[in-house]
Nucleic acid binder design. Structure first.
Length: 342
DNA sequence: AGTACCTGAGGTGATCGACA
DNA sequence: TGTCGATCACCTCAGGTACT
């Protein structure tokens, strides 16, 4: 950088190598045989050099500060991620939009843990509630699936939030909470929890590694002359406690992997430690089961764990509605398994 | 009793890839 | 090219234990 760009308050210090040369020269002269007056003169010279070095040091520090300030004032502003400020854009009639947003996001988190990984339809917040809806018909049509999930969501929303259901503030905050919890859960399953759930983490390192090791375990059916390859929905060994080559409803959802996944989700990465050896230790930290006061397993959470177990062993790289590698529709799988379980 | 430390959760911003 | 969603690393906070 040219010196003309430097602030005038920061002159360059004298050369440090010259001070070092002078010091070495004086040290050479300071022998015990020198008369006292010569030693006194050499000591004065030493003091003088020390003062110069001290001044140079201070000058360098000032110069560094000047350069830091200068670079800070000319640096490009860091790229800011654009974040939708729902609370700020909420309708004026909404009291405490900030608090409502936070509470709704937390409900979205809770909903994801206990009920479903995905919404059955993005419009679920804006449809009208069908007063004649019969929960026993929940899986008979897409319309009824939406009504069923809407009822579940309403069960989680506090009364003051229920009234605002159709607003962007509520739908956005709720789905944001779900997305956050889904991301956190999937990352922790393939990260800190993995070694507690499976015996050998090596095949899990890559998408192809997972396909080669576990495709059959999660229901892969190779293609033939007349058929494209696909992933079966029920011929999935991972779903059962003891796979006998065909589906067995008595052992459905009872695979140890599913139970360990469930334990990891609600009790953190160490939650599955010792689950089947009688050495299960309740984690001391704040965990999902404590936060949401989870005392028993509900159907939604069991199906969630099953879906998560399949995804964990799949070649898919992200936990999204339709697997990016397998094409498995995890959202539909959830609905179908939930219907089987209830 | 005070504190140091640990574990796990949630929030935030950066980055990357998909997509219009 | 800009926007959006998913993911990751990093940070702070809460709530617990262990030690002094």
């Amino acid at each position: 950088m040219p010196s003309s760009n430097l602030p005038p308050s920061s002159p360059l210090p004298s050369s440090p190598s010259r001070a070092t040369d002078d010091l070495m020269d004086i040290v050479q002269q300071m022998t015990p045989s020198k008369p006292p007056d010569v030693l006194r003169r050499l000591r004065r010279n030493l003091q003088s050099i020390a003062n110069d070095v001290q001044e140079d040091n201070s000058s360098l520090k000032r110069r560094i500060t000047d350069l830091e300030n200068q670079s800070a004032s000319t640096a490009r502003p860091r790229k800011q991620r654009r974040r939708g400020n729902r609370a700020a854009h909420a309708d004026d009639s909404v009291p405490n939009p900030q608090t409502i947003e936070e509470r709704t996001r937390e409900k979205g988190r809770h909903f994801l843990v206990q009920e479903a990984l995905f919404l059955v339809d993005p419009d679920v917040f804006t449809v009208d509630i069908d007063e004649d809806f019969d929960p026993r018909d929940e899986f008979s049509s897409d319309k009824n699936k939406i009504q069923g999930q809407l009822r579940q969501i309403m069960h989680y929303l506090p009364d003051d939030v229920k009234r605002l259901r159709t607003t962007e503030l509520i739908s956005g905050a709720f789905t944001d909470g779900m997305a956050s919890q889904r991301s956190s859960t999937s990352n922790r399953l393939r990260g800190a929890s993995l070694s507690k759930i499976v015996d050998n983490v090596k095949p899990f390192e890559t998408s192809s590694g997972r396909f080669n090791a576990f495709a059959e375990l999660i229901g892969y059916q190779p293609g033939t002359d007349t058929r494209e390859p696909y992933y079966s929905k029920l011929d999935v060994p991972l779903l059962y406690d003891a796979w006998q080559g065909k589906k067995d409803l008595n052992s459905l959802f009872r695979n140890p992997i599913i139970l360990k996944t469930y334990a990891s989700v609600i009790r953190g990465p160490n939650g599955a430690d010792g689950l089947f050896s009688g050495k299960l230790k309740r984690p001391v930290a704040k965990t999902v089961d404590k936060m949401y006061k989870i005392h028993c397993s509900v159907p939604g959470a069991i199906v969630n764990s099953t879906i998560l177990s399949i995804w964990l062993h799949s070649a898919d790289t992200q936990l999204v509605e339709i697997g990016d590698e397998t094409g498995i529709n995890y959202r539909e799988r959830h609905t179908e398994m939930y219907a089987d379980l209830t």
